Simulated scan of single mutants.
Amino acid sequence: MTDIDSDIAKTGSAMASDDSTLHILSTSDVAGIDITLSDVVSVVEQAYRTLADGRSDNPRKLTVKPRDGHSVAYAMLGRDGERGVVAVKTSYKHGLHEDRDMQHYYTTLTLYDDESGLPVAMLDCGRVGALRTPAVSALLARELAVPGARNALVIGTGTQGRLALPFLLTTLPDLERLMLFGTHPDGIRAVREQLHAYFPDRKLELVTDLRTAAQDADIVLATAGPHTPASVDAEWLRPAALSVLIGYGIAPSTLHRADRVIATSAAQMLVTGVDMADADGRLREVDAEFPEVLAGRAKGRTDAGERIFAYNSGLVVTDIALGHRFAQLALTQGLGTAVPLWR
């Protein structure tokens, strides 16, 4: 039994101790939780494997968006069979037509112990998502990148771009050339700071010629926002390259001309990947889903020369697993506030 498994086994009942009390973890509480990148990767990988084993439930998310598109809201319900936890995640963003600093974004995760039937915790889910997504990209790279991959290119310096390289180095420590394409000085500075914080001996190469950088990259992570000028075309990619779409930054041709397509969820790709459709409005079929690849039930890379496209969309089971891990650590670190919510 791993340390994480042991914590799962003994912490749930300690946290879910009162049917009228909810443990609240604020943004500052969550920010103060000490967790390693390898711990995050391990938790996320376990969540995928449990889902592939049929022991977890990850229904399709509900979406509400007004006609003018000024906001979007999501609700996601799921169950983690490894931890015996049921949870609801909500996400709301307002001001989608505004600059990033003018937008409002709120996301929460509420956890319930499905063995005792008691509430566990409610927490701000921002940091969970900021860690979960690059951890998934790093797992995709570990499983799908060409053997001996040495060069990685990250496009974008927002929330998902800032930890992309530290997570990649966690799963692929032999990477040598770390390239970044970004247009926001503050974001570029943040990427440098995060890389230095986790891997102080590694150097970041800021690139301006995107085509040349893409031609040199074994792994391309597209994490940019919707207004990015970046759009890597399939013809720019080297043979056997892996391109991973998280946000924006690569063209639809990278999907349609790929030798193999892997998605964290084919159903979610059909809903959230519509901007990658071809001229007829169609998306390329998915060859395999990533949980099945991790479980060994489906092939990831089948040939060293394949050019692979991977679609990284969030699954709520990974939020639940990582959120529960945060709740465990918060309890041991004395963080959070117990609120008698149902009295």
Rank of each mutant, 00 (worst) to 15 (best):
F181N: 08
S313Q: 14
D101S: 14
G300W: 10
S137P: 02
A145S: 15
A213L: 12
A47I: 03
D3G: 05
V64H: 02
G126M: 06
R307K: 13
K299F: 10
R211E: 14
A304H: 03
K299N: 14
G69A: 11
R162F: 05
E193T: 11
E235G: 11
H23W: 06
D114H: 09
A138E: 07
D280A: 15
A266Y: 13
A266K: 15
V136P: 08
N151L: 02
G334C: 08
T110V: 11
D113P: 05
L62H: 04
L140N: 11
T2N: 11
P166F: 12
H94E: 15
F309I: 03
I4K: 08
A31Y: 06
I35A: 12
A240F: 12
L294T: 10
R67Y: 12
V40H: 04
E115I: 06
G81V: 00
G225Q: 03
K10G: 12
V41E: 06
P119S: 04
A321I: 03
L270A: 14
G12K: 07
T27F: 02
A121P: 04
T337V: 14
Y248I: 07
M102T: 07
T208I: 13
V232N: 03
Q103L: 03
D174L: 14
G81N: 00
Q160D: 06
R79T: 02
L245H: 01
T36C: 15
A75Q: 04
A230L: 07
E193F: 03
A230S: 13
R257A: 04
A197H: 07
E205I: 15
G69V: 09
H227E: 14
A16C: 01
M269Y: 14
V271S: 06
E289G: 04
